[in-house]
Simulated scan of single mutants.
Amino acid sequence: MRESAGDRFFGISVYVLVGLITLIVLYPLVYVLSASFSDPSAVLRGELWLFPINPTIDSYLRVFNNQDIWIGFRNTFLYTTLGTALNLALSIMIAYPLSRKDFYGRNALTIFLVFTMFFSGGMVPTYLLVRDLGMLNTIWAVIVPGAVSVYNVIIIRTFFQNIPVELRESAELDGCSNIQYLFKILLPLSKPVIAVMILFYGVSQWNAFFDALIYLTDRSLFPLQLFLREMLIQDQLSDMVQVSDSTLDAHAMTVEGIKYAVVIVASLPMLILYPFLQRFFVKGVMIGSIKG
């Protein structure tokens, strides 16, 4: 079928718009990457636009020679691994019974869970609860308070509901228990939504810093994001120092270079993880959102 002039114009407009949006999204990423390899003095003077200026890896050498960065990486990896495993296990344990129409009281329980998405006790009561449970300055203070996301539970529940009930009835006729059905039939069929939940929970745990900021005072337990926050605060303080073209403050240059290098290093694991889960992403979210 021959396209009209209006159709061709619309197609070209869409490609141009998508291209512009892509450039807007990619430019900050390219800028940060270029700044991490550039001479910090050139970055401070505002000379960097796209490509690295006087390329150097000194900032990365400083990052990897910093003991705090390695401590932060270790802790963040631990929090992300344990937290994502706990998040996923609890979410599945809640979503499975809620997906069963023969589960008595599931509507009332769903309303109760949804209520928590809009109302909470607040920061102070939550802090007092964590303190009274003896979790201050422990890894559990970072992992437990956000162990379940109701939004993700609803996605998993809806995915489970879309699996034909006849499959469960056939399994029950063959003597399959509820636990066996969950682990041997339902979960293997739920790989797309599980992959999406791993991505959602993993990124959330990797980027989390607020709970650690509130509940942790021991630097040996700090996640990577807290150390990155300290560097950004140092950079804001260094901005108060008058810097000229001829004489640049050495501390300001050091912080400027390390800041961009740490952003790249902190983002790299999630960027590596995403391509492995991307093929499940759209399918898992769309199937999990067909029904309410």
Rank of each mutant, 00 (worst) to 15 (best):
V130N: 07
I111S: 10
F73I: 13
N87G: 07
D102M: 11
S34F: 04
I71Y: 04
W70K: 06
M93I: 13
V148S: 05
I94L: 14
V114K: 01
I57H: 10
G105R: 03
K101Y: 15
A42L: 09
N162W: 05
V165S: 12
T56H: 10
T80F: 01
F64A: 05
V30S: 13
W49E: 12
L29R: 03
G105M: 04
L78H: 02
V124N: 10
S91T: 15
T76N: 11
N107E: 12
T56S: 15
N66M: 07
P28A: 12
Y104S: 14
A141S: 13
P97T: 11
S149W: 03
V32T: 14
A85T: 14
V130G: 08
I139L: 12
I154V: 15
F73P: 06
R106D: 08
S59R: 00
S91D: 09
L50M: 13
M135G: 00
L29Y: 06
Q161R: 13
P40V: 14
L136N: 05
W140I: 01
G146F: 08
Y151P: 00
V30K: 06
V142R: 00
M93K: 10
M135P: 04
V124T: 13
L113M: 11
P55N: 10
R45S: 12
L48A: 07
T76Y: 07
D58N: 13
A141D: 00
T76M: 10
G122N: 09
M123V: 14
R74S: 10
M123G: 06
L113G: 04
F112A: 09
Q67D: 10
F119E: 06
V124F: 14
L48T: 13
M123Y: 09
F77H: 01
A141T: 04
V153M: 08
G134V: 01
S59N: 02
N87Y: 01
F119G: 07
G146I: 05
Y31L: 12
Y60A: 03
V32Q: 07
S41P: 02
A95I: 11
V142C: 02
V165Q: 10
Y60V: 01
V142E: 00
S34L: 02
D39G: 03
F37Q: 01
R157Q: 10
I92W: 06
T126P: 00
Y151H: 03
L29M: 12
A89H: 08
N87F: 01
V43R: 03
A108M: 10
T81K: 07
S99C: 09
V165N: 11
G83Y: 08
I94G: 05
G46Y: 09
V114Q: 01
F64G: 08
I94R: 00
T80I: 04
G46F: 07
T84A: 07
R106N: 14
G83P: 02
T138I: 09
S38F: 02
F64P: 04
F77W: 01
G134W: 05
Y60M: 04
S99G: 05
Q161W: 02
D39N: 14
V43C: 11
V114E: 02
S99T: 05
V130D: 06
A95Y: 04
I139Y: 13
S34G: 06
